[in-house]
């Protein structure tokens, strides 16, 4: 069988991903998660001494905490099947990736299982976040030193 013509057959018959529907679901799910984040940040600003800028750190930590509960009770994967990127892109999705791997690999022990595998899924985010931050800052620093731009 010719692979190319076969791929055409597959494209014709296999069900398509419902892109528009998925996008709408992602929009709503992601929107709700971010709104919850916004409300939590108001709580931190109103009741504690956090400013708009500094409230984002405890807010993110709280969101990850909520993500831990939802992951542990098996709810986050259902949100994930519904919301797709809507639940994967917010920091709760990052938390879910770390926490689900930690729970999953508990069976191999806390060092070789949890410790080694925790960042199995979320690792690339930190690696490439850090590396791109390095590159971007390096370029900017060079440009500033050359006097092309200023900070």
């Amino acid at each position: 069988m010719d692979p190319n013509s076969y791929q055409q057959t597959v494209d014709e018959i296999a069900p398509k991903r419902p892109v528009l529907k998925n996008c709408l679901k992602a929009f709503v799910t992601g929107g709700i998660i971010c709104s919850v984040g916004q409300l939590i940040s108001y709580v931190y600003m109103y009741f504690f001494s956090f400013t708009e800028r500094t409230a984002s750190n405890p807010t993110v930590a709280t969101m990850v905490f909520i993500s831990m509960l939802l992951t542990g009770f098996g709810i986050y994967k259902k949100i994930g099947q519904f919301g797709g990127a809507g639940s994967a892109v917010p920091v709760t999705g990052f938390g879910n990736a770390v926490i689900s791997a930690a729970i999953e690999h508990k069976s191999e022990g806390f060092i070789l299982g949890v410790g080694v595998n925790m960042f199995k899924l979320a690792g690339p985010v930190i690696v490439y976040g850090t590396f791109s931050a390095f590159v971007v800052t390096l370029i900017k620093t060079i440009l500033v030193k050359m006097g092309v731009i200023s900070w």
Binding site: A14, P15, K16, R17, P18, N22, T71, G72, G74, Y76, K77, K78, I79, G80, Q81, F82, G83, G84, A85, S87, A88, G93, N96, A97, I99, S100, A101, I103, E104, H105, K120, L121
Partner: peptide
Amino acid sequence: RYPIEYGTQKPPT
């Protein structure tokens, strides 16, 4: 695939 509790979206296939 992924850890059981990881929230990923499976396509209709």
